[in-house]
């Protein structure tokens, strides 16, 4: 039973079910805190993924740099951000990729949030 009692568009809270599904993927991304580990991954991505026991869905999403696929495979954004760091991507690159926008359009949309009303 998920802790999610109601749906929120485009949002999957990282609950027990996600944590179970994504453990290997997240453990690999957690390892990227270490520079040696990052270099080892870049030298042979498939071998590194095998060491951490990623399943095919996770490995495929890593190979494709598919952020939504990584989330669906149980990835947690706090750890995935370290994978993005290896690729030189920031959170606005990720936001653009996930919403199907260009980075410029995504950034412009963020700035446009200033136009929201000040009161509820």
């Amino acid at each position: 039973m998920s802790v999610v009692s109601h749906e929120i568009f485009g949002t999957t809270p990282f609950d027990g079910a996600q944590a179970r599904k994504g453990y290997a993927l997240n453990k690999m991304c957690f390892s990227f805190n270490d520079g040696t580990a990052r270099a080892k991954f870049l030298a042979d991505e498939d071998a590194y993924m095998r060491d951490f026991g990623l399943n095919e869905e996770q490995a495929k999403a890593i190979r494709a740099r598919d952020v939504l696929g990584l989330l669906a495979a149980g990835g947690n954004v706090y750890y995935l951000a370290k994978f993005a760091g290896i690729l030189g991507l920031d959170v606005q690159d990720l936001g653009a990729a996930q919403t199907g926008m260009s980075k410029e359009a995504f950034k412009a949309r963020l700035v446009a949030q200033n136009e929201q009303p000040e009161t509820l």
């Binding site: 949002t11 951000a81 996930q98």
Partner: peptide
Amino acid sequence: HQLEGQRAGFINKPFDLA
């Protein structure tokens, strides 16, 4: 703020100010 998913980039100014 929200970093992940199709709702990435979500911001709620009136709620934050309240």
